[in-house]
């Protein structure tokens, strides 16, 4: 239903062009969930903004974003507007800043419904109450007249999800929907998203820096590093046998509940490469513990592995089980 083909995003900066997204290919089928994982600055948010066409004005975007048979990059602004919020919805990272502070929850919900569905005020209000109840907000009628600052962070993110779900979108992009929330709320919000995704049979892209988040909740995972997809596989296959050293390092960096107290976390040493100065070789090679001379000289392509649908970009994929490597 959504296919991202060869999408690249370049941002002009004073130090030269910054390649935020480097020729990414992804697909999501109807009713399927794709996890996009990577550390901060790897281009996952830029990728989501590229799909939504919400990039900064100066950004240069190339490639194709096919959604329901039409290329979003070629659509007229008016057609794109009718698609956004209606078929293509988004939940942003920080619910403290993504809701308008001077408009009531009710206004922000109802305006979306009325923009796309031509409902009268009474029906739209009724729908809004149902939506708020569906995302687990107590006393939904009273919330309609409240302002965002009167709600907790978790409640605000539920409101943002209700807004995203309001017009029954075909695809929901959730851009780090739990990063700004308390740990205790994170699982609730993720479960809510997963439940609504199944119930409404919509496709979802779940963007996160946390491999643990995608583990049980996605059908497929794409791991991004320095603007590129470096490994892509069905979720069970990935966790069974990850091939890319970066994926392994990401997993190893997760705190484990069964580790002894005060065990140091194996953080990935070094920093991601400067995106304004692309490396000649594999962009992970400076930080990779398996890297050899070829890794520094040549960029590996994203290629099919022996298992179908498992792709990775590495000359020296890991052979043993991921758990053992950590």
């Amino acid at each position: 239903m959504l296919s991202v083909e060869n999408v690249a995003v370049e941002l002009p900066t004073p130090r030269g062009n910054l390649r935020a997204v480097d020729h990414v290919n992804l697909t999501v089928g109807a009713g399927r969930t794709l996890g996009v994982v990577g550390e901060s600055g790897c281009g996952k948010t830029m990728l989501s903004r590229a799909i939504l066409q919400l990039l900064p004005k100066k950004a240069k975007l190339s490639g194709r974003v096919m959604f329901d048979g039409q290329d979003l990059l070629q659509l007229s602004p008016e057609k794109l507007r009718k698609l956004r919020g209606r078929s293509l919805a988004v939940v942003f990272q920080d619910p403290m800043t993504s809701l308008n502070p001077v408009l009531t929850i009710g206004t922000q919900l109802i305006e979306t419904l009325q923009e796309h569905l031509e409902l009268d005020q009474a029906t739209a209000t009724k729908r809004s109450v149902e939506l708020l109840a569906a995302v687990g907000i107590p006393a939904p009628e009273q919330r309609l007249t409240q302002y965002p600052h009167q709600l907790s962070g978790g409640m605000r993110q539920r409101v943002a999800i209700a807004i995203a779900l309001s017009c029954e979108p075909k695809l929901l992009i959730a851009d780090e929907p739990t990063t700004a929330l308390d740990v205790t709320i994170q699982a609730q919000i993720l479960d809510l998203l997963a439940r609504e995704q199944r119930r409404r049979h919509m496709a979802m892209i779940l963007i996160t820096h946390d491999l643990g988040v995608v583990a049980g909740r996605t059908d497929e995972v794409a791991v991004m590093y320095a603007g590129r997809v470096v490994e892509r596989a069905p979720t069970p296959a990935l966790f069974k046998k990850m091939r890319m050293p970066y994926t392994e390092a990401l997993l190893a960096a997760l705190p484990r509940i069964d580790a002894a107290p005060h065990t140091p976390l194996p953080a990935i040493s070094g920093r991601p490469p400067d995106p304004t100065r692309p490396l000649k070789g594999c962009s992970f090679s400076p930080r990779c513990r398996y890297a050899v001379a070829r890794c520094h000289a040549e960029k590996p392509d994203l290629a099919e592995a022996e298992t179908p649908a498992h792709q990775y970009a590495c000359f020296h994929p890991i052979e043993n089980h991921a758990g053992a490597a950590a």
């Binding site: 507007r81 698609l83 956004r84 988004v90 993504s98 308008n100 001077v102 305006e111 923009e115």
Partner: peptide, 26 residues
């Protein structure tokens, strides 16, 4: 530049509504 303006765009609101309702008051 605010996130809530990006969200208003992502909601498919008309440019006039974004400017006059979402942006002017704050």
């Amino acid at each position: 530049q605010e996130d809530y303006i990006a969200l208003a765009k992502a909601k498919g609101l008309k440019a006039s509504r974004i400017l006059f309702v979402h942006a002017l008051k704050p």
